[in-house]
């Protein structure tokens, strides 16, 4: 069965997709809150001010959240999902929790989807926590490519820049049941 092709989100997605509190998976004042953030840049290193990042992640124990309520957060329920638009400097940020591993001994990661004007289709990637756990995807990449998938630890968070093209181009993913 063929499936529907994607199309760019275009320049006016702010009308339909971002929402109040979309980037606050936990309130920024939560005792375990960390900031996952970074810049989205193009092939010349210029900021991409019209990108949208979606974050989907496990909770701090590694459990996949099945709770609804992302659009009207109550400040207590962790839904594991959020949306952040980039600002004029191409910067996005989320207030969230450090995800736990999918299974013991696995390297935890944030699953990210990237949309932008000029991107004809969405892109998937993973933002891994720094660590030593073996990982099949990371292990199969040369060191310079691998580095694009690993967040940098900061005092109160994790930095993850997204390079759409060129030097330091982020590794973007496809999955077996997609056309390409």
């Amino acid at each position: 069965m063929t499936f529907a092709p994607g199309q760019t989100v275009g320049p006016f997605f702010h009308l339909g997709l971002p929402f109040e509190g979309g980037n606050l998976l936990v309130p920024a004042g939560h005792p375990e809150a960390v900031r996952l953030h970074g810049r989205v840049v193009d092939g010349e290193g210029a900021a991409v001010p019209d990108a949208l990042i979606e974050l989907w992640q496990a909770d701090s124990t590694g459990r996949v959240p099945r709770e609804t309520g992302s659009f009207h957060r109550d400040g207590f329920t962790f839904t594991g999902w959020g949306r952040a638009q980039t600002d004029g400097d191409g910067h996005y940020w989320f207030s969230t929790l450090i995800p736990g591993p999918a299974r013991p001994g696995r390297r935890p990661f944030f699953a990210l989807t990237v949309f932008a004007r000029g991107l004809t289709d969405r892109l998937f990637t993973r933002a891994y926590l720094p660590g030593d756990e073996p990982d099949a995807l990371l292990g199969g990449l040369p060191p310079d490519r691998r580095a694009t998938l690993i967040t940098t630890r900061e005092p109160r968070g994790l930095l993850f820049d997204i390079h759409l093209q060129g030097e330091g181009e982020t590794v973007f993913l496809s999955y077996p049941r997609q056309a390409r």
């Binding site: 959240p65 992302s70 594991g80 999902w81 699953a111 982020t170 999955y175």
Partner: peptide, 25 residues
């Protein structure tokens, strides 16, 4: 699209953990 598309091939990943599930609404 000229400066905003990745030039490297997508890397095939085996979905695991949250990738096997969608957020709930």
């Amino acid at each position: 699209s000229v400066l905003r598309h990745p030039t490297r091939d997508l890397c095939q990943a085996d979905p695991e953990g949250v990738e096997l599930w969608a957020p709930c609404f």
